[in-house]
Every structure is written in C-alpha cells, then in structure tokens.
Computed example of a mutant assay.
Amino acid sequence: MRSLISPRLLLREWEDKDADFVLDMYSRDEVVRFLGARPQALHDRSEALTRLERWRSRQDDVHAVWAVQDRRSGRLLGTVFLVKLMASGEPLQTADETEVGWHLHPDAWGNGYATEAATAVLAYAARAGVSTVYAVTYPENAASQAVCRRLGMRHLGQTDRYYNMTCELFTTES
C-alpha cells in the first residue's frame, strides 16, 4: 500500500496499534450515524481490530483504506478510502465502480482535512488510471455533500444501487 502526502496530512496504512483510535472514533454516534444501511457503533477493541482487518481485505493494487494523520503532530484524524462500491442486494456484492470516502474524528471536523485527504486520494486514483470515481452520502449528510462539491464532484441525484440504501450520488465525471 502506498502512503500519500498532502500539505498537512500523511495518509498511511492502518496498523493494529491504531485500534484504540478506531474504537474511539467509530464508537461515536455522531461518526457512525451516516455509515451504512444499519449504522452500528463499535463497542470494544476486538471489533476495532476486526474493522482494520476488513479494511485490509478491500485493498488491491489501486484500492485502499488509509489512516489520516496530521504530519506535524502525528495525531490520527480519521479515515479516507478509495474502494469498490458495494452493489445493493443480499448479500452486498462488489460493484465495478470506485468510491472515494472519508470519516473523521469529531475533534478534526471543520478544518478542511476531509477535502485535503480526498483531494490526495483522487489525484492518486487519476495517476492509477481510475478515470471516474463516485461518492455516496446519506441524503441528510450536508457536510459530506459540501466536501463533494469542494472536490468538484458533480451531483447525480439519488440512487438505491449501492449499500442497500438511498444515497446521494456524486461523480468526478464532468
């Protein structure tokens, strides 16, 4: 997995030693409320380790899930990812389309980190030959929709094609 660097951030591979941060971030209702068709908070460190392993299983030559770290302080801030979308159905199936996304710890909200991290990931995707990238958000998630717009993504409207839920769909295609 390739690390990425932006002006303020290091995007790096998640390590098991990061499990306490993952537990802290993903145990918060304000973080998980917009994640998946049935949002579920983590409850213990073993669930955080399982989450890290699941992220590793979604990696390939292009796709990855990165830890977002402040370059100056070394403090972890959240997650950014470039993964295959999951098509609706039982069970969910890997789709052909690629998704960019981000989850930040509430302590990191409002500082432009999501936009900066996603910009680095989209540049990486372009270098890797991924010409079209999508983002999906809950219809109520105005903050993530604002990030999509700051990234220059175009809003395609609502869809239920992914994750067994109705999402707002954004694309990098002009």
Rank of each mutant, 00 (worst) to 15 (best):
Y162E: 02
R45H: 14
R12A: 02
A123M: 02
D160E: 10
V68Y: 08
A19F: 00
L169W: 07
R58Y: 13
R161V: 00
A126F: 06
T50A: 11
P39R: 09
E53Y: 14
E15Q: 13
R45I: 02
W102L: 03
R72E: 14
V130N: 04
T132I: 14
F34N: 13
C148Y: 00
Q69D: 10
T94K: 11
L92V: 09
A41K: 06
R72Q: 13
P39T: 08
V100D: 02
F21S: 03
V83K: 05
V136Q: 05
W14D: 01
E47L: 13
A37H: 12
R54H: 14
L122R: 04
P7K: 12
A48V: 10
A123W: 00
L11K: 15
T119A: 15
R8P: 13
N111R: 15
S57K: 15
Y134K: 00
N111G: 11
S3C: 09
R33E: 12
A120V: 05
P7V: 12
A114H: 04
A142K: 13
E90F: 12
E116I: 07
S144Q: 01
G36Q: 02
E140Q: 09
Q69V: 15
Q158F: 11
D61I: 07
R149L: 14
E173S: 12
F81W: 07
E99V: 11
S6L: 00
R75Y: 04
M165W: 07
A37Y: 11
V62M: 04
D160N: 01
A95Y: 08
G112R: 09
W109D: 01
S73Q: 06
Q145N: 02
Q158K: 11
Q40D: 05
V65Y: 00
S3F: 07
P7M: 12
A41Y: 12
L52Q: 04
L92R: 06
V121H: 05
L151S: 10
F21N: 05
L104N: 05
A128I: 01
L85V: 10
W55L: 00
R150G: 08
G89K: 03
A142G: 12
R149E: 12
R150L: 10
R56Y: 11
P91I: 02
